[in-house]
């Protein structure tokens, strides 16, 4: 991208035109209706899901629109306990948190070295990592399954953690290399003159300065892994180790035999509500974190 908003004097149209009726040539009314319609299209299905999750199965079947006659909290208990949503949540955390720590640590170390130390092979390693972004994960899927199987790590948390980490490296290294390149080298020199060794420079000086970059890459990877479905589907076939996305898909496919719709509605709500809360608090950081992949691409 050639656009750099920081260098531009008045970035926002609305700032200069506020108060003046700039006037749409399309009727304003129509635009507002379209916007409101799309907002309703986003909000209503979720709202419907939420209030339906408190209904009985009978109500769900015979009056899809109506509000619940009484709040069926029991749906949530069945979803959390009997349908194992609680276990799936735990499994997701067990996989995603260590993966995230590994990715942030490893990609920061790798990116730092590639960004700031000239040595033979530096470029080859950098482009080697970049190559990983070119291929769709489907291409690796079948050999990956057999590799993980041969390593005895199918159906194991460490197996999935290592795979998540490995597949997150290319973009994270790419992003953080760019980031470390922008840090001033005077700081590095000053610290060395003050008697710090290379490790101290990294951990005490460079890593703290890289925090904004680590935050973006952290949000990007957290959501990517939390919502990942393909890799656990192939590598975790034991229902006890299902992560949240697998558990949810499994519940949906089970409905054709079991017919406990109310518990399923409750399960989806339990997954949606924390996401909604976290998003409403950190929405601007999250928007930045997610779109970072495309803006730098």
């Amino acid at each position: 991208m050639t656009i750099n908003s920081a260098e531009l004097p008045t970035p926002k149209m609305s700032a200069s035109s506020a108060g003046k009726p700039t006037g749409f040539s399309l009727p304003r009314m129509l635009l507002n209706i379209v916007l409101a319609f799309w907002a309703a299209l986003v909000v209503f299905p979720m709202l419907w899901l939420l209030y339906t999750s408190f209904k009985t199965d009978k109500e769900i079947f015979f009056s899809p629109w109506s509000l619940p006659a009484a709040l069926q909290w029991d749906n949530y208990v069945r979803g959390w306990v009997d349908a194992h949503i609680g276990d799936y949540f735990l499994n997701s955390f067990i996989v995603v948190l260590p993966s995230l720590a590994l990715i942030l640590g490893l990609s920061a170390m790798t990116a730092y070295v590639l960004a700031r130390f000239p040595f033979p092979g530096n470029r080859i390693i950098f482009y080697g990592f970049m190559a990983g972004m070119l291929f769709p994960v489907f291409l690796a899927l079948i050999p990956l399954f057999f590799l993980v199987k041969d390593l005895g790590m199918l159906n194991s948390f460490p197996g999935l953690i290592l795979v998540y980490t490995a597949y997150s490296l290319p973009f994270s290294v790419f992003f953080l290399t760019g980031f470390f390149k922008t840090l001033p080298s005077e700081l590095h020199e000053a610290a060395i003159i003050d008697g710090a060794n290379q490790f101290q420079v990294f951990f005490r000086v460079m890593l703290p300065l890289a925090q904004p970059g680590l935050l973006s890459i952290g949000i990007f990877n957290f959501l990517g892994m939390w919502n990942q479905y393909l890799l656990p589907l192939v590598l975790m076939s034991d229902a006890k180790h299902y992560v949240l996305t697998q558990g949810l898909a499994y519940m949906l496919h089970q409905q054709y035999y079991q017919n406990d719709w109310s518990a399923l509605f409750a399960a989806v709500s339990m997954i949606m509500i924390p996401t909604l809360l976290v998003y409403s608090i950190f929405q601007s950081q999250i928007q930045k974190g997610i779109t970072v992949g495309a803006l730098k691409g």
């Binding site: 490893l106 130390f117 040595f119 390693i125 899927l141 990956l144 597949y167 490296l169």
Partner: peptide, 25 residues
């Protein structure tokens, strides 16, 4: 002494990346 930093900083991620990403591709 830069190689004392470069080598341990690169090896773990390279190992993971080559094993789980490049080799399957």
């Amino acid at each position: 002494n830069k190689y004392r930093l470069i080598v341990p900083f690169l090896i773990p991620s390279l190992l993971l990346y080559v094993t789980f990403v490049l080799y399957p591709y």
